[in-house]
Design a protein around this nucleic acid. Structure first.
Length: 282
DNA sequence: CCCCAGTCCTGCGGGC
DNA sequence: TGCCCGCAGGACTGGG
């Protein structure tokens, strides 16, 4: 679930580790199947030990700790992962403990209930193979209209599906894709090729507006309560959701349309049949 | 190029 | 009451 706003909140929450040094990275004893860590933890430690963290960045939906020798420790929370500075929600799902020195923070934690998250230490020359421009599009928070349009307008896919393509633009996931298209008043089933100039403009505005508000609210904590910021506090943007997980409820914008749930590319899409009326272009 | 189905994983809730 | 099954969707892979 963590998408751009949640991961950006995590990044900001742990940015204070900048300047600290990595003492040791360890996997706490955990009855669950271990998450994917590369390279092996002993090799990772040999490379990372003693290195200073020079910045905490975000690339798409990942938190990136840049190290002084050019390495990058990339944390990918996927569905249920959290990057934390304080005690985790449960000890049994604590996956990684990064011990630090030289700053105000003693340790940085990675917690993940489902264990789909990954952690990898990449050397500078490896980085682009994983997260270079061939693999990751421009960040959704800063992409400009022309770039957005040029990256998507030739695609024959439905716009909702295309927005999830991290090579086209990075950061949007299933929840925000529905919210963005509702704000832009575009039917999620429309093909990219059929969108007109005004619709691209509305889409670009909506991407910016939805993601910026969600970042301000520190992300969305859904009913399962999993997502938390670095201090284990819930986000607030769930109170601003207009369509996500609201199937069969009335649209909060027009007050008449019923929110419909459909499945696209094996994922739920929510939209208002009235606000997001399909046009002839399909 | 694009699309789809399968894979990983855990906790929850519906149905019987 | 208890158990099974399907679902949630991040990213990736293999096949058409």
């Amino acid at each position: 679930m963590p998408e751009l706003p949640e991961v950006e909140t995590m990044r900001r929450g742990v940015a204070a580790v900048t300047g600290s040094r990595i003492v040791r990275v360890e996997r706490p004893a955990c009855r669950k199947r271990p998450i994917a860590i590369s390279p092996r933890i002993d090799v990772l430690n040999r490379r990372a030990e003693g290195q200073q963290i020079v910045s905490v960045d975000r690339i798409g939906k990942r938190v990136v700790l840049r190290l002084e020798r050019g390495d990058a420790l990339v944390i990918e929370p996927r569905m249920t992962g959290l990057v934390l500075l304080v005690g985790p929600p449960t000890t049994q799902h604590l996956r990684l403990r990064i011990q630090l020195s030289g700053g105000s923070t003693r340790e940085l934690l990675f917690w993940d209930r489902r264990g789909l998250g990954t952690v990898r230490l990449l050397m500078a020359r490896e980085f682009d193979a994983f997260y270079g421009p061939d693999r990751m599009g421009p960040d959704a928070l800063v992409i400009d209209l022309k770039t957005l349009q040029s990256r998507l307008h030739r695609s024959r896919r439905a716009i909702k599906v295309a927005l999830l393509d991290q090579r086209a633009l990075a950061g949007i996931g299933n929840l925000y894709a529905s919210e963005i298209l509702h704000r832009a008043m575009i039917d999620p089933r429309r093909r990219c090729t059929g969108l007109n100039r005004g619709e691209w403009q509305r889409l670009h505005d909506a991407i910016r507006e939805v993601l910026e508000s969600a970042v301000q609210c520190e992300g969305s904590t859904l009913a399962d309560g999993t997502y938390r910021n670095a201090l284990n506090e819930a986000g607030g943007y769930q109170n601003h959701h207009r369509v996500y997980d609201r199937a069969n409820e009335l649209c909060l914008s027009c007050g008449e349309g019923v929110i419909t749930r459909i499945v696209q590319a094996q994922r739920s899409t929510f939209y208002c049949r009235i606000c997001q009326r399909r046009t002839a272009a399909r």
